[in-house]
Structures are given as C-alpha cells and as structure tokens.
Amino acid sequence: MRGEQILIRVIQLGLFASVFGAWYWATQSGVRVILLPPPELVWREMQTLLFSGRLWAAAKITLWTIAQAYVIAVVAGIAVGFLVTRSRTLVHIFEPVLSGIFAVPLTLFFPLFVVFFGIGPDSKIAYAATQCFFPIALNTIAAFASVDELYVRAGRAMGASPWSQFRYIYLPAAMPVTITGLRIGFFICIAAVLGGETLAALSGVGKSIALAAELMETARLYAWIAFVVIVSVTLNLLVLAAESRSEQRNEANK
C-alpha cells in the first residue's frame, strides 16, 4: 500500500515535471516567443502584475461580480427548489423543465444579456447567476424530494410542528445533495463570470486576459492564466480533500 502511494506521487510529479520540461524545451528549440514565452519571462510578468497592484485591482472586480451572482443564484435556487418540492405534482411539472433548460448551453444567450444589462458588471452578474441557478435549484429539488417519507410521518406522529419537521427532518436529510449543488454552482459561477468578462467587459480578470491577447503581450497573457489556474487548482484540491475526508467519515460510521 505504502509503495503504491509513493508510485502514485512519483507519476503525478513526473507528469507535472514533463509539462514544465516540454515548455522549457520548446522555448529553447525555436517556438516563437509570441506564442510560447519561456517560463522565466512569465514568472517575471507574474511578479510585475502582483506588485504593481494590477492583479488585485482586476481580481477585486471579478470577485465582487462572482459574489453577487452567486448570492442571487443561491437564494433563488434554494427558494425555488424548496417551493417546488412542496408537492409531488409541482416536481413532476417543473423538474423536467428546469433540467431541460440546464442542458442548453446558456452561453448562447450571452449576447442578449449584454444587450439588456450593458457591458458593465451587471451583464456578467445576471449571466452567471442564471447559469448557476439551475444546478442549485435542481439539486435542491432532488434533495428535498428524496427525503424519506417515513421519517416525516414518524416525526408528525410524535407531534413535530411544521418548523421542527423542517429543522430536524427535512434540513438534515436534504443537506448533502443541496451542498453538492452549491459546490457545482460555485464553480459554474466562477467560469461564467470569467467567460463573460473574456467575451465582453470593461474590466476584471477575464477582460485583462482578452486585452493581453489582443495586444500580443503573450507573457502577460500567460501570467494572468497562471494566476487563475493556481487559484482554481487550489480550490479544487480543497474540495477534493474535503470530499475524501467526508467519504472516510461515512465509511467509519457504517
């Protein structure tokens, strides 16, 4: 077991090293700098962005946009999900409609958002909130619809008020699947804001990336990409770690 663990880490490190090696080798062997700048140039550009305050200025706008969009989607998604599961009929009517819309890439509608909400952050907020509303609402529906009827009936038989039914039966039972929806929604929200900013915006991280490409400042372009990759990889690793921890806990409880 121990040996396999080491082998796995070695393979992962090897993958990482070979990507960097290939990058370095390619820049040494005549790939045009305009397409692939050498790592040290990108590193220098990252430091410039970090210390000149440019990174923070753009990140502040993007983070604020993400936060607003996410809060709107979470409130709307959970409210709709909860209300729909109040009756089985409503679930039958609305669930397929919501999941049908979710299957259509809403990116198609991005130009409409820009027409309606302008080129400022508002269009990105509306676009990202719409995109991540669906996974949140769908998971909330799935979560509340799958609460075991037996527990609710038992609670009611023992005289639980509607509030305590919600607080002590529905909420704990529905929590895990709802949280999955919140997690999926969060990553969709980040991607939607960055995507929207890349397509049409005045400021923010996505716009900075598009601008760097337009001006052919490739090293800066790679530096921006590197920052986003570092942040999103960190977030993903945290989520993966939390997931495997709760999986282990579930295993132990069995």
Binding site: L194, G206, I209, A213, E214, V229
Partner: peptide, 12 residues
Amino acid sequence: GIPQAILLPLVV
C-alpha cells in the same frame, strides 16, 4: 475544474 474560458484568447 479550471475555468477554460480564460484560455480562449490564447487558443485564438
């Protein structure tokens, strides 16, 4: 998990 939209200008 990486939001790929950021790679779009590079791809183009």
